[in-house]
Design a protein around this nucleic acid. Structure first.
Lengths: 250, 250
DNA sequence: TGAATAATGTGTTATTTTTACACATTAAAC
DNA sequence: GTTTAATGTGTAAAAATAACACATTATTCA
């Protein structure tokens, strides 16, 4: 934002000239807007993609669910606010987090003018120690997400679309899986996120060709069929190759 | 953002319980942050991709340029604020505009806490009637954009990266060209945006196969060589096909 | 204990997409 | 009318993607 400007049209100045004083007083007083972050937290459980929601207690939105969020503190970076919400809700601090979109329609919040920055987050449901019941938190199958409080359905849609896109460009999926996973797990995840069926052989070929999988030497346990190999994700290699990475297509 | 919540960890409530009253008072008083929009306005002229900048008059940023932006009015939608800035600066109202990212580091603005929502905009430099000189506005070759005021270089980089990506998925380029253009113009544009050389025959093949070009029957005038055909973009067809559109690769 | 089950693991071929590449044509400039 | 600097066009090689089947392995159940 430029702070001193003279807007001129047809040779004549229009609009006001803003000095540092002008804008400082604006910043300090009138033109202030409440700012929040909302997190769309994805998890993967029972071969289904889920989103973490909380029941809304507001009369206006009785029975509906909403995303997890909070107002941004005056001295807090945006990303820090999103991490704070995640930490508070999931107890996890090392999470995938990506800013997606900011929603600022004037009528979007009943408490007044609140602009919210939406974040997409991925967590491994087995790592977190959610007190689901006490917090009134729920893992919702994304296929059953219909109406949410506020404009949260719109926010959810934007984050889900972003996830679908991102996962075809970067191997984010590992953030949703346990440290060790089978190729079947991985494929189930991709199928759940993209909502399509994939050819097993081609899927394996593609992932092996990426060369980000480390064979742990271990096998699945307690499966009612031939157990598959367990792999882990080679984060170091991925970080190195990231710059040149142009994505995978399914 | 959920408004009534009890945060519980290890069975005990932590953090405050927010009621509608609580949050309403927060929204109305303490937790307010100034919000601005900043527009990265791209243009295409002399076969170069340009960005519209204004000279910063602040001592702190003397000699540097900054993006065009303004504070968001309390009763104004975010997108509306971005359109307002564009209209004010370019006189144009029918523009391509896309929200890109929100920048909210605490120390990013000297006047206090200002969070800014960055927009990427595309305009046809021949259509607009900028009073460049009077406004101290400048079209900058994107290759010469180095240091900008505030965190505007970071914002510019994000918007340019977004443009490079988007143009490979959707034919946005037409927003930067005159209504009638030659295939050479189109290719020059893509080469300028992506900063690569493209094979002429393959480029033509690709665009014809998309079937979004209408032959106007007219030819280039006053070129010192064999004139090329002039085409226009079939917006109607694109809008219809948009849903199924999965992008083009270069 | 062995037969049935339900998955894993593996390669090749056909199809599609992408890339590389050369020459005749046209209008303007000299 | 000769030179110049582009436009306009097709094909073949290479790479990527999609389609597809059977032997193997551990578990379950009779």
């Amino acid at each position: 934002m430029e702070m001193e400007m003279t807007v001129i049209e047809n040779g004549k100045p229009v609009g006001k000239i803003k000095t540092l004083q002008t804008i400082q007083s604006e910043v300090e007083s009138s033109n202030r807007i409440a700012l929040s972050v909302d997190c769309v937290i994805f998890g993967f459980d029972e071969n289904k993609l889920k989103v973490l929601l909380i029941r809304s207690d507001l009369k206006k939105y009785q029975g509906r669910y909403s995303l997890l969020g909070d107002l941004v503190y005056p001295n807090e970076d945006l990303d820090a606010a999103a991490y704070r919400v995640l930490k508070q809700r999931t107890g996890l601090s090392d999470l995938y987090l990506e800013q997606v979109q900011t929603f600022g329609a004037t009528g979007r919040h009943p408490a007044g003018r609140v602009v919210t920055v939406a974040y997409c987050s991925l967590i491994n449901v087995q790592h977190h120690k959610l007190k689901i019941l006490e917090n009134d938190l729920h893992w919702h199958d994304i296929k059953t997400v219909t109406e949410l409080a506020f404009d949260h359905k719109e926010i959810f849609d934007a984050c889900y679309a972003r996830l679908q896109k991102r996962i075809q460009e970067h191997p984010l999926g590992f953030n949703l899986l346990p440290k060790k996973f089978s190729l079947r797990d991985l494929q189930n995840l991709y199928e759940a996120i993209l909502d399509i069926k994939l050819d097993r052989r081609n899927f394996r070929k593609k992932f092996f060709s990426m060369d980000f999988l480390i064979d742990t030497g271990e096998m699945e346990q307690d499966v009612p069929h031939r157990p598959g190999k367990l792999y882990k994700f080679n984060y170091e290699k991925y970080e190195k190759k990231k710059k040149k990475w142009f994505g995978i297509d399914f």
